[in-house]
Amino acid sequence: MNFRIVSALVMRHLFLYSRTPMRMVELVFWPLVDLVVWGNVTVFIQKNSDEKFGGFILFFLGAMILWDILFRAQQGVAISFLEDVWTRNLLNIFVAPVRTAEYLSSTFFVGFLRILITCVVMSFVSWIGYSFNIFQLQWWLVPFFLNLMVFGWALGMISTALILRWGQAAESLAWAVPFFIQPVVCVFYRVEDMPSWSQPIAWLFPATPIFEGMREVMKTGTMSWSHLWVAAGLNVIYLTLAGWLFVWVLNLTRKRGLLTKFATQ
């Protein structure tokens, strides 16, 4: 792994974001729309329910901010790849001395930066607008952040591999993949609220114990360590499998001669 090459690839994205303010707006605009909708729903429920439930309902806002960590990390990987496709730069990258791990690491870092920007803005607005302080999750926020970011990276690699395999026709997967899993990772409801047959499926994803943990911390101030260990273990498996899938698809496209067609279409 050559960090000079990783930094060069990150630099390319920083140049891009600095030159196109609309990309920065995109990082903030949609999360804010979500925040306002859920914030208002939360206020409405709070006003029409008893005090205990009204306080608890704030978890909607926490869930939304944490979901955005996962989503932005996934987008960091998938959209960074698509930027190279859209600008016909992919071939230049693949014929430069860039290892797959270096390329992916740069997209991970871009994902990390995207999360930071989005989270800072959302945390501030939710605090000012809805009196919701994300830091009430205390230091638990750190493992929540890390686990969701790593799972987002894994989903990003899976999305990218699928796009690489099926070409630009599959581009919409860059946005769709996180939403395929959203219903089963229990972002806005508990695992026990799901139909019983689907509950074991929910526990197959590392995001599930994190969202369960978040609700637990907001309710009791602490959470079960086992949730964190399960999430971390699953993340190791997902990241390994997603990395393997990406490399396998990349080699497959080389074997079938699809890489050049895809990069120049």
């Binding site: 390319r12 891009l16 030159r19 196109t20 600008t87 016909r88 730069n89 230049n92």
Partner: peptide, 9 residues
């Protein structure tokens, strides 16, 4: 048939 990213200087 390839290009450098058109949106950068």
């Amino acid at each position: 048939y390839t290009a450098l990213p058109g949106n950068l200087l």
